[in-house]
Every structure is written in structure tokens, then in C-alpha cells.
């Protein structure tokens, strides 16, 4: 499915991600955990093309995305929900979702997105900037799904969201995976959410993956150890 090999990403002289290799299978939910500044966001941005990679390949179904620009990667099947959500705040909820249609070339918002997030249908004429944090998060996910991605990337989706909604978010992500048959990569710091949602956990430290565990074999203590300062 998604096959990343030898990926290097730098900001100027400082190399943030060094020779990273990982593979995500069909219908798999992978969580990348790590403390702040360990390279999670940089990895996400480089996968979607918002930040260029200096070496390595990102293969999605055998097609190398590394030389492509953001919009081409999205059209090839990447969906991105960034940290801080970055919805278009002066545009209405409906228009926000419609921007995502640029990738799929469809004209109308698929009805199942509203089924997934009924609150967005009620608020479709409101401006995105006037939604609450949790609603904005749903909007950002709906916008990414409108492009019918094969791989959905979410960068710290629980940031700034109440604990009760975090649990629901995990359920929603699993539902999206089951209904749409896509793979999900989520970067996180909230351990309970990770245990809720992930099939596999990767721990990132200083731009390198240092630990990997399948769902059945996740040792909470070990991962909590990596996350504590």
C-alpha cells in the first residue's frame, strides 16, 4: 500500500528525519507517537508535500509521490488533516468540504460524509471559523475524505479537544476505515487515544523510529516511557 523508504527531511542544515523506512498495509491504522519536536509533524508534512523531502521514496501503490507537488499527491490518493485543523475559516462549512472535491473531480458532496458527521449538515451554511474545535476537526476530516483518499493522514487530531470527544473520534476513525476501506496514519501524544484506535504503534524519537508494536503486543508501560519527559 504505502511504502516509505530512505526518507530524509531537513530544515536548512538541520536534518529532522533521517533514513526513515515504514510500510502501511491496506485497511491498517498506524499511530506514530513521540514527544514534541521529534519529527512527527515534519513527517506528515513531507508525506503530503507541504515540506519537501531531500532523499528517499514515498510509494503509494507502486507510484512514487516524492517528486510530486502537494495537489498531485492528494489526487494520487493522500488525504491530509493537519495539526490545528487549518480549515478555511471565512468559507462556509459546505464550501470547505467542496474544496476537497478538487482532488476527486466530483461535483457534489457525497451524502455519506454528512452521515458520518451529521453536525456538519446542520451547520453547512455557517462559516468554518465559527465552529467549535471539535466541529472544526470533523470538518477537516470531511474535507480530506471528500477527495476519496486511499491513505488518510491525521496530525495530532486530539489537540485541543475535550476528553469525551476524543473517545468518539477514535470510534469515528475506525468507522471510516471500515466503511471506506482506507489506511490511516495518525500522529499522537495521547496514549489512551492511541490504544483506542491503532492496529500498530510506531514510536518516533529524533526523526528515527525506535520502537514498533502490533496491537496485541502493545506494552502500555514501554510506550508511556517514551512519551514521558
Amino acid at each position: 500500500m504505502l511504502d516509505i523508504s530512505g526518507l530524509c527531511v531537513s530544515y536548512g542544515e538541520s536534518r529532522i528525519i533521517n533514513d526513515l523506512n515504514m510500510r502501511i498495509g491496506e485497511n491498517e491504522i498506524v499511530a506514530i507517537v513521540g514527544r514534541n519536536g521529534m519529527g512527527k509533524t515534519t513527517l506528515m508534512k513531507s508525506l503530503v508535500g507541504m515540506h519537501p523531502s531531500s532523499a528517499g521514496s514515498i510509494r503509494l501503490d507502486e507510484r512514487d509521490l516524492a517528486p510530486l507537488q502537494s495537489y498531485q499527491r492528494v489526487r494520487a490518493g493522500i488525504g491530509f488533516v493537519p495539526q490545528g485543523r487549518m480549515i478555511f475559516s471565512t468559507m462556509t462549512v459546505r464550501e470547505n468540504i467542496e474544496t476537497g472535491l478538487s482532488a476527486s473531480g466530483e461535483k457534489r458532496i457525497p451524502e455519506h460524509l454528512y452521515e458520518l458527521f451529521p453536525v456538519l449538515k446542520d451547520m453547512r451554511s455557517r462559516r468554518g471559523g465559527n465552529l467549535s474545535g471539535g466541529q472544526q476537526q470533523q470538518l477537516a476530516i470531511a474535507r480530506a475524505l471528500a477527495g476519496r483518499p486511499k491513505v488518510l493522514l491525521l496530525d495530532e487530531p486530539t489537540e485541543g479537544i475535550q476528553p469525551s470527544i476524543i473517545h468518539e473520534l477514535a470510534r469515528t476513525l475506525r468507522r471510516i476505515r471500515d466503511e471506506h476501506g482506507l489506511s490511516i496514519i495518525v500522529s499522537e501524544q495521547v496514549l489512551s487515544f492511541v490504544l483506542d484506535v491503532a492496529d500498530r504503534v510506531l514510536v518516533m524519537e529524533k526523526g528515527v523510529l525506535v520502537h514498533e508494536a502490533e496491537r496485541a503486543a502493545i506494552d502500555e508501560q514501554v510506550i508511556a516511557g517514551f512519551l514521558s519527559v
Binding site: 508535500g49 502537494s70 495537489y71 493537519p82 487549518m86 478555511f88 471565512t90 468559507m91 474544496t99 478538487s102
Partner: peptide
């Protein structure tokens, strides 16, 4: 709609599939 998305946030507009 594409123009307004690019005006608001250019990198994000690219990341939803708009050829900026």
C-alpha cells in the same frame, strides 16, 4: 472557491488537491 481557499491558506489549499 479555489481562489478563496488559496487566499486563506496556500499550503493547505495545495494539500486538499488544488493546483495553486
Amino acid at each position: 472557491r479555489k481562489v478563496r481557499a488559496v487566499v486563506q491558506n496556500r499550503p493547505m489549499a495545495g494539500a486538499v488537491g488544488i493546483n495553486t
